[in-house]
């Protein structure tokens, strides 16, 4: 971000970034175009996502609500956006089954986006009357104020299924342990690596990092969305290749300047 003394048109410090960015985008967009043209990739099974329907169905059978938490961050966070996309799929299923879906949120912008998405899902499922805007409601921006509400609400409403999809911090375990205490089936997804162990320990299924971002594409089942997943894989393969190349070069470099060094058996702890 440093301005060069000569305000040239293209910042030369950022050339590498430009190359990597263009390459990544190219992989993703090309795979999407290919998928649209009919070359749809086969995506491996992701356990947590296959359980979505089962969880909603169970809540319906038991006559208990479904709780969906799209994280506690605002819409500027890609995880929240991914969470809202998953919400639209869950809402679609819930509308079909006519199950109760509660979406307490901690940011008012998220409330707006979540309402749009739930309403559209209800429309698409042919159940426009099922949507109740008051079920998607703002609680408070304060992390633990929100957690206090969620913990209390779980103890009282006893949801049968809980979804935690978005960006979570310390409240992750408050949510997951209280959900576990009321016997809910729990599916979590986040890219906040520090919280993953808690979801792994307390939830039935956890979407880890990139899996969570892939969830929306996977659930949509649309060819072009699935195509972007293959694009990610191609980019990953490229990164791995470059990485291996870099490691080989680094290793060769170690030997080139002083190749007369004899390896010894000393243990250096």
């Amino acid at each position: 971000m440093v301005l060069g003394a000569d305000a040239s048109f293209l910042n030369p410090d950022k050339l590498l970034l430009l190359v990597v960015l263009v390459a990544t985008c190219a992989c993703i967009i090309a795979s999407m175009v290919l998928a649209r043209a009919g070359r749809v990739p086969k995506i491996r099974r992701i356990a947590g996502l296959e359980a979505v329907e089962e969880a909603v169905g169970r809540a319906t059978e038991m006559g208990r609500p479904i709780l969906f938490v799209p994280g506690i961050q605002d819409m500027d966070n890609p995880m929240t956006v991914a969470g809202i996309t998953v919400l639209s799929r869950v809402a679609g299923t819930a509308a079909q089954y006519d199950a109760t879906l509660d979406v307490p949120v901690s940011r008012s912008l998220v409330m707006q986006a979540a309402r749009e998405s739930v309403q559209a899902a209800a429309l698409q499922a042919g159940q426009p009357d099922w949507f109740d805007p008051e079920r998607v409601r703002y609680i408070t921006d304060e992390q633990f104020g929100y957690a206090a509400y969620a913990a209390g609400a779980m103890a009282r409403d006893k949801p049968a299924a809980c979804f935690y999809m978005g960006c979570f911090f310390a409240e992750s375990l408050i949510l997951a342990e209280n959900g576990n205490a009321v016997g809910a089936i729990q599916i979590a997804g986040t890219a906040e690596t520090a919280q993953l162990p808690f979801f792994v320990a307390s939830c039935d299924y956890t979407l880890i990092g990139e899996e969570f971002f892939a969830a929306s594409a996977y659930l949509s089942g649309a060819p072009d969305q699935l195509g972007t997943l293959r694009g990610q894989d191609i980019a990953k393969a490229l990164i791995a290749l470059v990485l291996v190349g870099g490691v080989v070069m680094a290793t060769v470099k170690v030997f080139t300047p002083k190749s007369d060094r004899a390896p010894t058996a000393e243990m250096a702890p």
Partner: peptide
Amino acid sequence: TMIPLVAF
């Protein structure tokens, strides 16, 4: 991650 596999 681009580190030499053999270290001295």
